[in-house]
Computed example of a mutant assay.
Amino acid sequence: MGPGTRMTFVKTSGYQSKRSIFLCTELEIHIEKRNTNFRKCITVKKRVAITLWRLATNAEYRTISHLFAVGRSTCCKIANDTCKVITDHLMPKYICLPTGQRLIENIRDFRRINGFPQVGGAIDGTHIPIVAPRDNPADYYNRKGWYSMVCQAVVDANYCFTNVYVGWPGRVHDARIFSNSDIYRQGENGELFPQHTVNINGTEIPVFLLGDAAYPLKSWLMRPFSDFGNLTYEQKTFNYKHSSTRMVVEGSFGRLKGRWRCLLKRLDVATVRVPYVVCSCCTLHNFCEVHGDGINEQWLNGVVGGQDNVFLANLQNNQNNYAENIRGAVASYLV
């Protein structure tokens, strides 16, 4: 989905897209309204179409109102309500950390990129532009000079989101956001991935995430070696393959914003509703990827991924020998 297609329920050869119909079926029980004696309700298909058009274009409700012959306030309510339904009911189904056979396949897919073993996901973050809030606007004014809300995400090897954490103001330090996220808590408690270790060079290697140099080194999160100009060949190889493997998260953000262009412009919704919009876009992104709805490379023109928008500060690493041994064993394996 993207500019020109966007699942707007335009009929092709006399029938609607199977994916469009399937999405309506998924949402129908939660958004369907009943006719009254005085007026006909707006159909599920039109409700979903209005929401998708809003997310894909960030068009003003005045424009959407003309397109769908529905009042502006009604369009606004439909989009807000549908985003909440998508977040509450579809997000748990389409966005979750891999387990079982899906985890094994994900590790295999990451390894195919550049040989990196035991990767369960890649983590990064991005700022979502928003309109200056009425309450405490200074909290949302980020270092780049605009108002935003931070979205931290983990992705798999196929550009799908497996964890999304959004809601913190753009001014809040990203290290604080990370340390308060479920991903950090699960990682520290050993609950992030099932026990699926492999022995590499005599070291038991667990499943881990890949994060850039701003993240702490943990047994469950591998960051690159700090480059002070004296890295060994093994360490340089590790860093190169780490970076090329982790690029999938930036690609995921790019594909997300290419499809749902409301995340590229200022999101003109109440601050409290921003997380619902972002989570809905991430869920629908996964829906597209899972059901084979491809991405047009032209949609990515002018779209940026994660790190250009986000500045992550180093956390106190609290590195232990186990994490160092894991990184060292993987570095030797990759040579």
Rank of each mutant, 00 (worst) to 15 (best):
R327M: 11
T51I: 04
I29L: 07
G211Y: 10
H127I: 06
D174S: 01
G292H: 01
I64R: 06
Y147P: 09
N239F: 03
E289K: 01
R246K: 13
L55N: 04
P137H: 02
R19L: 11
N199S: 15
R259Y: 10
C160Y: 07
R185D: 08
T87C: 11
V249Q: 05
K265A: 10
K46P: 02
K257C: 04
Y276D: 15
P129C: 03
F161A: 05
R176L: 06
H173R: 13
I31S: 07
Y94K: 03
Q16M: 11
A157C: 01
N314M: 08
K84N: 02
V131S: 04
S226Q: 13
E204T: 05
G120V: 09
P206L: 08
R327G: 02
C281W: 12
G4S: 09
S181C: 11
A132W: 00
V166C: 10
Y94N: 03
L23M: 03
R273H: 15
I86R: 00
K241Y: 12
H89G: 07
L300N: 14
T203P: 00
F228H: 13
Y140F: 15
D156M: 00
F22R: 14
L231H: 05
H291D: 05
D81H: 05
D139W: 04
R261S: 13
Y147T: 08
L103E: 01
R54F: 15
C83L: 00
L90E: 06
A313G: 09
Q16C: 07
G4Q: 10
N318P: 04
Y240Q: 14
Y141S: 01
T5Q: 08
E297A: 12
D135R: 09
R112S: 12
I29G: 03
V70L: 06
G2M: 00
M222L: 15
K84Y: 04
T51C: 12
K84Q: 12
L27Q: 04
D135M: 05
P92E: 02
W168E: 10
L103Y: 07
Q235F: 02
N199A: 12
F22G: 01
E191C: 12
R108P: 00
P216K: 03
I21Y: 00
G145E: 09
P169M: 05
T245H: 08
C83P: 08
M1K: 08
P169K: 04
V207R: 02
V274R: 04
I107V: 15
R62N: 14
H291T: 06
